[in-house]
C-alpha cells in the first residue's frame, strides 16, 4: 500500500504538467524527515493559477533549460568572481548549481530550480525572487510580473554587469 502510494509521488525532474496531473489524484506523502503531523492525506486540488508560486508554462525543454541556465550561472559566476577579487570582503562560491555570494551586507543565494525550469535568487536587500526564461528577450524574468530581470537586479544591487 505504502509503496504503491510512494511510487505515485511525482519525482523531481519529471515534467511539471505530469506532476500536477498526478498530484490531482493521489495523496502527497511527506519525504523522509518531514513532520508526521502534517501528512497531507486528502486529495490535493490543482492550485489556483493566479497564485501558483511556480509557473506551469514551460517555454524550454529540459535540455535547453540545462544549457541556458548553466550558461547564465557560469557567466554570472565569472562576473561575481571578478567583483569578489576587487572587494576583499566578498566571497563567491559555485557548487552543484548553487551560487553563493557573501559579504558584509549579507548573503545572496542564486540557484537553479530544474523542476520548474527557473532560477531562484535570494537577496539580503530585496528578498526572494523566481525567474523564468523568456525566449523572446533571452532574459530571466521575474515570474511575479514586475518586469524585472535577473540581470537588472544584479546590476542594481551589486553594480555587476554580466
Amino acid at each position: 500500500m505504502l509503496s504503491a502510494l510512494r511510487s505515485a509521488i511525482p519525482r523531481v525532474g519529471r515534467p511539471l504538467t505530469a506532476a500536477l496531473r498526478v498530484s490531482a489524484t493521489t495523496s502527497v506523502l511527506p519525504r523522509r524527515g518531514a513532520l508526521a503531523a502534517v501528512h497531507c492525506h486528502q486529495k490535493i486540488q490543482p492550485p489556483a493559477r493566479a497564485f501558483f508560486a511556480t509557473a506551469v508554462h514551460h517555454t524550454l525543454d529540459s535540455r535547453e533549460y540545462a544549457q541556458i541556465s548553466e550558461d547564465t550561472m557560469v557567466s554570472l559566476w565569472d562576473a561575481l568572481d571578478f567583483y569578489a577579487e576587487e572587494n576583499p570582503s566578498v566571497e563567491v562560491e559555485y557548487a552543484s548549481g548553487v551560487l553563493t555570494l557573501s559579504s558584509d551586507n549579507g548573503t545572496y543565494v542564486i540557484n537553479k530550480q530544474p523542476p520548474n525550469r527557473q532560477i531562484w535568487l535570494s537577496s539580503p536587500i530585496s528578498g526572494p525572487f523566481q525567474y523564468a526564461y523568456d525566449v523572446g528577450t533571452k532574459q530571466w524574468v521575474d515570474i511575479r510580473g514586475s518586469g524585472d530581470t535577473l540581470k537588472d537586479l544584479i546590476e542594481r544591487e551589486l553594480g555587476v554587469i554580466f
Binding site: 511525482p10 511539471l16 498526478v22 519525504r31 503531523a37 490535493i44 486540488q45 492550485p47 511556480t54
Partner: peptide, 28 residues
Amino acid sequence: NPRNVGSMNKNDQDVGTGLVGAPACGDV
C-alpha cells in the same frame, strides 16, 4: 509543535482555501 495543523471543509461557504507550491519542487 506546529500550530493549527488540520483542514476544514473546502466546500463551506465561509472557508477560503489556498494551495501553493509544486510537488516536484518539494514544497506544497
